[in-house]
Design a protein around this nucleic acid. Sequence first.
DNA 1: ATAGGGTTAG
Length: 851
Amino acid sequence: MASLPLPTTPKSHLTRFKSTTTRKSCNFATTHLTKIHESEKKIEILYKSYFHHISSLCKEGRIHEAVDVLTEMGLENFRIGPEIYGELLQGCVNERALFTGQQIHARILKNGGFFSKNEYIETKLVIFYSKCDFLEVAIDLFHRLCKQNVFSWAAMIGLHCRIGSNEKALLGFCEMHENGFFPDNFVVPNALKACSSLQLIGFGRGIHGYVLKMGYDCCVFVSCSLIDMYGKCGVLEDARKVFDAMLERNVVAWNSMIVGYVQNGLNEEAMEVFYDMRLQGIEPTRVTVSSFLSASANSRVLEEGVQGHAIALLSGLELDNILGSSLINFYSKVGSVEDAELVFSRMVEKDVVTWNLLISCYVQNKQIEKALDLCCEMRSKNLRFDLVTLSSLLSTSADSSNIKLGKAAHCYCIRNNLESDVVVASSIVDMYTKCERIDYARQVFNTTVQRDIVSWNTLIAAYADLGMSGEALKFFYQMQLEGVPPNVVSWNSVILGFLRNGQVNEAIEMFSEMQSIGVQPNLITWTTLISGLSQNGYGYEAILLFQQMQEVGIQPNTVNIVSLLLACTNIVSLRYGKAIHGHIIRRELFLSRSIATSLVDMYAKSGNINLAKKVSDMISSKELPFYNVMISGYALHGHAAEALELFKQMQREGLKPDSITFTGVLSACSHAGLVDEGLSVFADMVSLHHVTPSMEHYGCVVSLLSRCGSLDGAVKLILTMPFEPDAHIFGSLLAACRENQEIELGEYLSAHLLKLEPNNSANYVALSNTYAAAGRWDEVSKLRDLMKEKGLRKNPGCSWIQTERKLHVFVAGDKSHPQTEVIYKTLAWLEKEMRFMGYPPLVNNAEISCS
DNA sequence: ATAGGGTTAG
């Protein structure tokens, strides 16, 4: 009873009591006293029923009605006790009803200092203002508390945690402890959350120790927070330990474990936990499914994600913003644009994130038009673009080299103060680069204030792509001077820059240097090198690198295989090419169009045109690249009739020949000396197919004309073409001069050629051959002296003829030339491989020296 | 206590 204040006794009773005690006998007074007691009891019961009424209204969230009851009590002269105010304040806390709570606070103050000095009420007030995020008042009241307790401390720590003052939350945690209040299992989760935000794993471990000491580890809330904390700090082993040690796991524990794995890129582990959870029969929530979808999206596993979608439908989970977005993200990452669109159309509420996801889905799947349409639709719905929308938009402009759109997006950024964002700035730099305005890109980069690894990489990649290895390297060093350590992407770009510029040795040096300082090459590094080496004529080294790559346990992908097949094409390795073909079939990579094309190309170029045809026949719907590689294969090996037949066939099937097709057809005619066919194809190319002739096309026709003795025609064509003739064209002419013993013209052309490329030994050799054909040996030896003087040596060459089971190989050139060594190494390797396959050794390995 | 989006390299 002591804790309950006496209700105000109605006046009528009091007066009667006073008058009776003074006038009447004791007996009389006793009866009255009994009556009073009875009525007090009635009042007490009435008060209690009011209290229960208010309490249940508050619990149902009907705060306003509860306040009306309070007013009614006041009119009936009840003195309101703190438990009623407490209940009301709690109701306001639950409903976050700031204004009503403040009214109640006012009523408490009106009753004088009595209640506001009550520990229960003052604590409730601190809790109320904390929960309503009313920072100043909460802190003020907290400091004026007569008596602190665990609850008021918990409220303050919770508040600081919610508004992101994590340091203050942790300081509060310590201070509370110092003041003799033991943080309970309600405070610990907040403190742990602050630790994860600040990445203070040490502090987190300390709290974990405290949890064990206090025995809070049996509280699911605490355990879940520990899992979350370890997950957010990247210590998944410890998160797992806590998870495994839990006696009873609720769905949040499972979710936290899954989320932890997903956020640390351990997608497979996340999916495993999900499957365990399914086995245990735990009903998934939206959190479960959307995290599982993230894992599936990250590891691009189609089937799993679709299962996730099915589970969401079967469990009747509401398709809210987040679940829907996760689904769109998943379908986008696995390339199912239609499914992403379907989910998007089914979503009721969509926010910027949802829109951005579908836009980025279109961008990643190269559906530029749709991406732009969606941007317009977004604007028409009055949704504002944010950083993410603009990054996608800029990426779209870059992919389509649409500088007009890119500039518009850039301007939008400037108008809306978005251009200072690092990600957006990088996208702008990339956009100008891909639109071939590296000067603008450089300008934008120079004005960026904030630069991260991606900004630097974007710029380095831009110069590397152009083969400007010096510039790329300069920025590679500059970023380090500015305190940004390069990552594998930066190294890859520098290596690419060297390879694009023909600096093979420098590229390989960078490759070993990156490893020596502990940067592990990834698949892209290996692919860059393999394709760069083979493009620079180092096919054998490229294949060796592929072997090394597999030894360190890196699995090839489509791009990697394509670059490898290119290397095989260049060194004429059928055996190796076949081995890769086997690998492709085993791994079912054949479904990839680019691989199939490269395979046909490899077989065609390495002289096995029948195998090329076989592979090509297996492809049901052939596209332009198939015909192109087959035609150029036929051309290379002198099968002009087949090349021309294919050329006709592709047109019958409705395919439009392109510039590459014509290069193949023209070179086929040139090799076979089919003048009429070649000239007619050349004429059709311009007039019928509207393909502008390139230097290569002219080259083929010039070589065709000179080969057939029409030197005049060749010269005339050179005079009308809109290019400066290149060394290749001069080479054809020189060969023709040699055949026709046209010494004068040959000399004239050679002078030009030597001026054009004074350090290319091939030109001296060509001229020397011309003289040799005319029997002018004095000139030949003069030229040889000139080459010696200039330190030039004849490039070695290797040619071959393949018969049924024999490969005849001829190596020609300067034996001491470094390139010769490479050729011999390649041959030795080829021979070993062929013997292994049961072929007889290479025959006729004759050497023809330079002189 | 747990959940969704953007930029760079082959």
